[in-house]
Design a protein around this nucleic acid. Structure first.
Lengths: 257, 257
DNA sequence: GAACGCAATAGTGTCGACACTTTCTTGACG
DNA sequence: CGTCAAGAAAGTGTCGACACTATTGCGTTC
């Protein structure tokens, strides 16, 4: 979990994270970003074993920063580590996905309620303005932008809860489901329901209607889950299809997704 | 976040964590446990800069496993990393403590509700039996045992929610506030209110009274916060007292706690 | 032809070394 | 007497190498 001193080069939507910790754009940090990108974009496939030497070669750095990055990613749940066998891309099962979304729902609803209690009017107005500033062009943006703006909206609610731990948790969750959300946004099933949801949530916020707002949020999140599940299936098919009948090992990996 | 292949040697209460990831008792893992222990026991003082070379010497390993451990601890919020300056013990302010307890309350209440919905009767009975098995001797145990049993109780609720993410989150939170809780347990203000709380929570659980149980939990957690704050102040005083007037640097550190 | 074991290979875990950055010390200067 | 600067010391970030473990491939035996 790290705030990035943006390099400008790789432009996936940044996320404000775990306050005090800062890193510069050194090898370790670059490795972290690059590997996470590979994971998010399915370049490293779920269940796959990660070869440190290979990675270090392709990134042009030694194994040390690679391992540091992988350790961080392990702490954040992207990969898992088996002693003497190495790091593996963690396969996010449909079940695991539901668990993550459930957690997200819990955090966000709580954040919303706290925001209603604690935020002053100018804060709530900030939320309203944030949304109004992007709502008009929201649908026409490229996926990455939509995603960043959507995450920004939800993160702002977390910030206005006044509890930085909630922001950190939500950031971490966002990072882990980002690749799924990205897929979902590009999927035909993605429609503008999200937009009306957000508008309703903002409305509840300015009225400080905690209960209703939390309910809307919960529904908003639950709504995306089923759509996302379908999108996920399609995406996995797409990822594993090209070299499908090739070997049995790969087949086996598909199964445990 | 890691499940430990218990070495038996250092016996602080283990915590079941982030499922898939496993580590053996290699240097890196030992370093992680040892350093976390140092942090938890205030041997490494808040705000202090961590000297990797010194640590590596005292643990008898090279800096590599030390750095891996510190990176993990950074992801978990124990320490922070400033580029080219190193790792620092993260100072847990009173405010930060409240935030963490608030998060814990959110997670636990949600877990309780989910447990009421999803757990079958034998699960709930397991919770009841867990508590009944320890309630009689609860108060007479040494602090570490009390702490472990208490964490176990709350973790079991999280497990019975059926969402492993909640277990992971709670484990992580527990780890971060453990040293505080330990202090609180040893503090004179610690009384048996906890025991009656737990009993009432179990009662609500077997009745599947989600609302009431969540309320009890919330109160249970809030109750400990104020007591803990006092205990924290005393502890910090104790920690920084010995070499208090020594230099100004250290004084400055006390201030930002 | 299949199962087993052994050798060869690939890969992780840890180490010591070195380059570069930050911090401390010392001494000159105003 | 305090301020600043240059050099020395300490410390981090990264590297390549090596030891040890897991995996793969091959040959042997039944």
């Amino acid at each position: 979990m790290t705030e990035r001193a943006e390099t400008g080069a790789d432009s996936d939507p940044s996320l404000a994270n775990e306050a005090e910790t800062r890193r510069s754009a050194d090898s370790s940090e670059r490795a972290y970003n690059t590997i996470r990108k590979l994971l998010v974009e399915f370049k490293l496939k779920p269940g796959e074993r990660i070869n440190e030497v290979q990675l270090s070669r392709s990134l042009g750095v030694s194994r040390t920063p690679i391992r540091e990055a992988l350790n961080r990613l392990a702490s954040e749940g992207f990969v898992s580590l088996t002693p003497n066998r190495g790091f593996f891309v963690r396969s996010l099962s449909t079940e695991g996905l539901l668990d993550l979304y459930e957690l997200r729902s819990i955090i966000e609803c709580a954040a919303f309620k706290l925001m209603c209690e604690r935020a002053d009017d100018s804060d709530l107005d900030r939320l309203r303005r944030y949304w109004e500033a992007i709502v008009d062009v929201y649908r026409d943006q490229p996926p990455d932008i939509i995603l960043a703006e959507d995450e920004g909206f939800h993160l702002l609610i977390a910030e206005l809860s006044g509890n930085p731990e909630l922001v950190g948790q939500l950031s971490s969750i966002n990072a882990r489901i980002r690749f799924i959300r990205r897929i979902q946004i590009e999927h035909p099933s993605h429609d503008k329901a999200q937009i009306t949801s957000h508008s309703a949530i903002v409305e509840a916020a300015v009225k400080r209607d905690a209960e209703n707002g939390a309910k809307l949020l919960r529904e908003h999140i639950e709504m995306t889950v089923s759509a996302t599940q379908q999108a996920l299936k399609d995406a996995l098919l797409k990822v594993f299809a090209p070299d499908n009948g090739a070997d049995l090992k790969r087949r086996r990996r598909v199964r445990d997704l």
